[in-house]
């Protein structure tokens, strides 16, 4: 029996879209069951959303006050208790999953497969290494539990037509109190979420300043796109860290990616390779971004972006 436990990611009472992507990866294993587990102080709303994901057999919930924030040290012992009934544990490869999954794997005494981009068999997976410059096929010993993080950009979200049952669990391992949540500073934005948006406009060092970044936001709003940035732009303080796209930031796969004033270091390119269409706008015609762009335009972004807005009408 192949049974997969998918750990739901959620924030503020809402299920994160990465969960449905992890379910897609789980479905590719062709298992006998896919159960989603929601850990929260109040899991009901999130569990109801998770229950709709196609392919989910049931949704398990653990409601405890300690689960109000997703602390890996608190979540992991609970997941380990539940994981004994499963052959696979899948977690989205977001900062939530990257923090949590290795802690679960170590407690289970197994290695982890990070960033699964394709499923070749129940124990065989492909994953990127060297910032995506090589793809390895790895095989997990058939007798070990597979703990894997799922590279969200490689998987479309499973649809939401299902109606799986929700089952509350009582697992009561001793939870540590050595780690406490203090606060979360969240960028307030009405723009689409960078990780799920079909269109993304990203700015780089070429944008030049925090003030100048307004032109990127303005253009993104014009076409209904999310806003991203290169590491250089984040390091320079033009935009907050959660906008960073690349090897160590967010890996995204929008239908349309427009890179503005981004030269295209390999660490950035690895974050956007799965995009449908990549457009590069840069004043340097030799910039490496043009090597992978589907459509390139050499020129001054401060002139081109307003022209684009006018041309779109």
């Amino acid at each position: 029996m192949t049974k997969i436990l998918v750990i739901a990611e959620h924030l503020g009472g809402k299920l994160n879209g990465s969960t449905a992507r992890a379910v897609s990866a789980a479905a590719a294993v062709k298992p006998d069951a896919i159960d989603v587990i929601v850990l929260s102080d109040a899991p009901d709303a999130v569990a109801a959303e998770a229950a709709k994901i196609d392919g989910v057999s049931k949704v398990l919930t653990i409601a405890r006050a300690e689960n109000a924030h997703s602390l890996a040290a608190v979540y992991a012992p609970q997941i380990v208790k539940v994981a004994s009934g499963y052959t696979h544990v899948f977690v989205p490869s977001t900062t939530f999953g990257k923090d949590l999954a290795p802690r679960v794997a170590a407690l289970l005494g197994v290695s982890q497969v990070s960033d699964v981009m394709s499923v070749e068999g129940p124990h065989t997976f492909k994953r990127p290494i060297y910032a995506g410059n090589a793809i390895v096929t790895v095989e997990v010993d058939a007798t070990s539990t597979v703990v894997a993080t799922i590279r969200t950009a490689s998987w479309a979200a499973a649809a939401s037509n299902g109606s799986a049952p929700v089952e509350p669990l009582n697992v009561e391992p001793l939870l540590p109190s050595h780690t406490r949540f203090v606060n979360l500073q969240q960028g307030k934005s009405d723009r689409p979420d960078l990780q799920g948006a079909p269109k993304v406009v990203s700015g780089g060092r070429g944008v030049g300043s925090k003030e100048n970044f307004e032109i990127v936001y303005k253009f993104a709003d014009k076409i209904g796109a999310a806003v991203g940035a290169s590491r250089a732009a984040v390091d320079a303080g033009y935009v907050p860290n959660e906008l960073q796209v690349g090897q160590t930031g967010k890996i995204i796969a929008p239908e349309l990616y427009i890179a503005v004033g981004i030269s295209g270091a390999i660490q950035h390119l690895t974050g956007i390779k799965d995009a449908g269409t990549i457009v590069a706008i840069n004043k340097d015609g030799e910039a490496p971004i043009f090597e992978i762009a589907d459509i390139g335009l050499v020129g001054d972004l401060f002139k081109i972006l307003p022209e684009l807005e006018a041309a779109i009408g």
Binding site: V110, S111, V113, T124, P128, G132, N133, A134, I135, V136, T137, V138, E139, V140, D141, T143, S144, K273, I278, F290, E291, I292, A293, D294, I295, G296, L297, V298
Partner: peptide
């Protein structure tokens, strides 16, 4: 208990056009 059985270069994106 994880064995790497194969290494491959990533799929290349085809060269685009300039406008």
């Amino acid at each position: 208990h994880i064995k790497t059985i194969h290494y491959a270069a990533p799929p290349k994106r085809s060269k685009g056009v300039m406008v």
